[in-house]
């Protein structure tokens, strides 16, 4: 196994163009586990750790550009107010040690349906900044996940950053696990209110071959909410929202949970998180 260690981003892209089969590695929290378990043996590892620029984040207009090397720990500490949904999701990733190493870009690279970062990225409408020696592509998050552990990156592309609109309204992330910490999602859900657009964003994790939105639920609830008068959330509408979210999922039975439980719990999480978000928006305080 070759170990490629570029120092600049340009070098990294050059390596990737030359060796498209190389697997990029940053925190190693996914790649090293796979290697240790002997599941797939990359011909080469492309170590992005020396590329210092990747560890920066910046504000660009209303967008936060999070470099591919920003760890979950820093995201929680530095970006909580700007990206609350993603920060909440980050807080549920693994253990402190894993959060010190793992990155959102790594989550995207692995594209596991159970990745914790995906639902809030979907709910916020993030954009993946992919780059190769041929140029930069801005991939909308909804087009990024193409199958179980597959994504839209081309063989010579690397993720340089993730661009996420700063929260313009309340956001919540919720995840089911069979223990109270350090657990892979049985299923998860994120909601983001976009009051300016009178729109609600959603993201479903671990309940379909890929992370996905629940478009019907989004449309239904955007129309049902009293954005103007900020009247309380109608319980029936909240319930319907939950049903529609569950309806958008296509879960399976597996070792972590049953499909029917995933559908049930998605509906509950969707209803509850919408309630919290709406309460925040209408100034009723925490639920």
């Amino acid at each position: 196994m070759d170990f490629l260690r570029p120092v600049t981003w340009e070098q990294a892209l050059a390596y990737k163009a030359e060796r498209p089969e190389a697997t990029p590695i940053q925190g190693g929290t996914d790649v090293m586990v796979e290697i240790n378990l002997d599941k797939g043996r990359p011909a080469a590892l492309l170590d992005l750790n020396p590329v210092a620029e990747l560890t920066r984040w910046s504000t660009e207009g209303t967008e936060i550009r999070v470099g591919a090397g920003v760890t979950y720990t820093r995201l929680i500490a530095e970006l909580g107010p700007l990206l609350p949904g993603l920060a909440q999701a980050s807080r549920t990733v693994g253990s402190p040690q894993i959060r010190n190493r793992g990155t959102v870009a790594g989550n995207l690279g692995a594209a596991s349906p159970a990745g914790d970062a995906h639902p809030p990225l979907l709910a916020s409408g993030a954009i993946v900044e992919a780059e190769s020696v041929r140029g930069t592509r801005m991939i909308p998050i909804t087009e990024f996940y193409t199958g179980v552990k597959r994504n839209a990156l081309r063989p010579d592309e690397l993720i340089r950053a993730v661009r996420i609109p700063a929260a313009a309204g309340p956001q919540y992330f919720s995840k089911i696990g069979t223990r109270n910490a350090m657990v892979i999602a049985v299923c998860s859900f994120a909601v983001a209110l976009h009051p300016g657009e009178r729109r609600v964003g959603t993201g479903i994790g671990s309940a379909a071959p890929t992370p996905r939105r629940a478009p019907e639920a989004e449309e239904f609830v955007a129309a049902a909410l009293d954005w103007e008068g900020r009247s309380p959330l109608d319980p029936g509408a909240a319930r319907r929202f939950g049903e529609l979210v569950a309806g958008a999922a296509a879960p399976i039975d597996d070792v972590r949970g049953r499909a029917d439980y995933r559908l049930h719990s998605l509906a509950v999480m969707a209803r509850r998180t919408l309630g919290w978000a709406w309460n925040d928006y209408t100034g009723r305080g925490p639920a």
Partner: peptide, 12 residues
């Protein structure tokens, strides 16, 4: 229940 995975704020 659920811890920081935030499945409830007390509901249920």
């Amino acid at each position: 229940p659920g811890g920081v995975a935030q499945t409830t704020h007390g509901e249920g």
